[in-house]
Design a protein around this nucleic acid. Sequence first.
DNA 1: TAGATTGTTAATCGATTAACAATC
DNA 2: TAGATTGTTAATCGATTAACAATC
Lengths: 221, 221
Amino acid sequence: MTPVRARPQVPPATVARLPAYLRTLDVLAAEGHLLTSSEELATRAGVQPALLRKDLSFLGTYGRRGVGYDVPHLREQIGRVLGMAVPQRLVVVGVGNLGRALAGYAGIAQRGFTLVGLVDVAPDVVGTVVAGLPVRPLEALAELVAVQGATIGVITTPPSAAQHVADLLVAAGVTGILTFAPAVLHVPDDVDVRSVDVASELQILAFHGHGRRRAVDGEGA
Amino acid sequence: MTPVRARPQVPPATVARLPAYLRTLDVLAAEGHLLTSSEELATRAGVQPALLRKDLSFLGTYGRRGVGYDVPHLREQIGRVLGMAVPQRLVVVGVGNLGRALAGYAGIAQRGFTLVGLVDVAPDVVGTVVAGLPVRPLEALAELVAVQGATIGVITTPPSAAQHVADLLVAAGVTGILTFAPAVLHVPDDVDVRSVDVASELQILAFHGHGRRRAVDGEGA
DNA sequence: TAGATTGTTAATCGATTAACAATC
DNA sequence: TAGATTGTTAATCGATTAACAATC
């Protein structure tokens, strides 16, 4: 029996920090650094050096003791682990304010993603061109995902439509869904869902701020 | 010596789930439920019943054994803990695509927040009206926060401007900052920062999807 | 060699789950 | 009372930190 080579098991908390490391390495590279240390990289990424080293240890041994990390090399390795070697292709479902903002967001392309399709249900939106792409009807979603080879679907619809759209994306074969709709989505185990809920983030901030009274420059004199 | 009544110590992981419970209670209330169980509320919110009960136990004892939870009452208690008894006031700095989308996002008002100011640096944007509010110059930020009593600042600027804007928001007295700029922000301990990085979310999805090949309806026949 | 810095181990800390006594 | 469901305890699990031996 051929033993399945175990995919190196990277803890979720570590995976969630890799994009920040990658971004920080981009900054260091742009500043001309060829070499960095766990101290510098960690501080810039906003974590403890020990945590950075532990995180990187799950990926392999890319540093040199007494020396540090080669910036371009580490950058490439983390990019590879994240699956960014091949540009990932996205479809956005829901071309309202937020969908348009995302479609026009340069940061997405800069970080290795290609927007390949826009979908909406509204007849007055379908057929218009947004960010250089024609908006397609919901019925075209499955074909769009297949033809364009999209792997990730982004949901920017009202919450009432989110589960239906998720079902369509799953049936079409995406491996990941990023949703901005405040709703719990049920998907099969082999599909990954991440959720961004702006109002929830604000409520978490409200919890911490509530009852707090901050001293401010020039006040109370 | 008067003992300071300790603020009930709610773990961060619990705080982060409270908005989802609140939202789920809203749905249950809208459906006419007056009573719910940890089983139903948890399932709808996407967590385990035991975890929901543990979370609620940090807030107080709001359920009745053998019966369940009173929907309007629990809704009110969680809202109060989150500091939503008083509507929280927001300023948005950066009126680009994303800033406009947020300004026009009804979900923010629905969940208890009031947008009280918009700020940008671009001379051709300052003075225009977006979502019913005039866009003010960056120099007006401190006064705007003070006069309007804003407690939360939202940063939707390019990453290069984010730290400077954060410094201004902190000096102006906000207690919380929500940033969409992919950059680490340094703020004093008494200010809370939450960060939403769309490209990072996509990269985390790419990690999980990478190398995965999903079976799709109608394929392989 | 001496100094620097990684990779790893062990200790600590926090979060989640499972089980059940309390009690409606 | 019998059945249901909470609130809480103890066990498990995972993440972070601190310390240091390995090694460049």
